[in-house]
């Protein structure tokens, strides 16, 4: 139990150390440039303390419960798949359990990502409810699921990372021209927020486990890149979701009109 409390203390300290530069910058600009107290400073202070405390608790819990399991599972699953596979030739089909796990864990960790929750809440507020916070998070998580799964496939097959990323960028660029203007900045943002506290450690463990266990892959060279996949595919899924939602809406409106006209 004592160990648990020292853990909390340590995590709280390291969280404080991580945010210290930001706090200094904020105070310098508030005091030195604005020369004014922010409105409702008490509310902001208690809220910030809650954020810090909450994040420290969250990290403690992750370290205690989720990361060890996630990392062990990633290792065991890749070992199991590799053991079942032929030794001399790598066949990508033998690793289907890994792709399934990659998609499932990518989806699940993204739904729990606090940074994404923050952006989704803001998007709902700013759009006056037109963008649903839950819908956005599901769309982003689906994108991460596809991305991490495809990224695992890339590690297994040992194909070149740039080709996948360049192709994904090309898709993003084409989709941008078919999307409603108001969704574009949000979609681009959702690529960056997905890979944070919860997703990165688990996904990185998966990548390293795969690269270590698949014959002919090196963890140092092939272990990278999963995070890049997890950052690009949410943009595609959010743009896609918006395009489909718009089409359905327009189609519905046209149908309504046709029904009224005759």
């Amino acid at each position: 139990m004592l160990e648990f409390w020292t853990d909390i203390g340590e995590t709280l300290l390291s969280t404080l150390r991580d945010v210290a530069p930001i706090v200094v910058i904020l105070v310098v600009f508030q005091v030195g440039v604005l020369r004014r107290r922010p409105p409702n400073i008490r509310g902001i202070a208690t809220g910030s303390v809650m954020v810090l405390l909450g994040l420290a608790l969250f990290l403690i819990g992750l370290e205690q419960a989720l990361f060890p399991i996630g990392e062990t599972m990633a290792r065991q699953l890749t070992e199991k798949a590799a053991a079942g596979a032929l030794l001399d030739a790598v066949r990508w089909q033998d690793y289907w359990v890994v792709y399934l796990f990659a998609a499932a864990i990518g989806f699940a960790t993204t739904v729990a990502e606090p940074a994404l929750i923050a952006v989704a809440l803001k998007a709902r507020e700013v759009s006056g409810g037109a963008v649903s916070a839950w819908g956005l998070r599901i769309a982003v998580a689906a994108g991460v699921a596809v991305g991490v799964s495809l990224g695992s496939f890339r590690i297994v097959t040992g194909t070149a990372l740039p080709w996948y990323i360049v192709a994904a960028y090309a898709v993003v660029i084409v989709m941008t021209y078919f999307s409603r203007r108001t969704i574009i900045p949000l979609a681009y943002d959702s690529g960056g927020v997905t890979t944070s506290t919860v997703t990165v450690p688990v996904v990185a463990a998966l990548g390293l486990g795969l690269a270590a266990n698949v014959p002919g892959r090196s963890p140092l060279i092939d272990g990278f890149g999963l995070i890049a996949f997890a950052s690009v595919f949410p943009i595609i899924s959010v743009l896609g979701y918006a395009i489909v939602a718009d089409r359905v809406e327009r189609w519905g409106a046209r149908k309504d009109r046709q029904e009224v006209e005759p």
Partner: peptide, 9 residues
């Protein structure tokens, strides 16, 4: 705690 603190902090 984190989400609650976001809105007020």
């Amino acid at each position: 705690l984190f989400v609650q603190g976001l809105e007020s902090g």
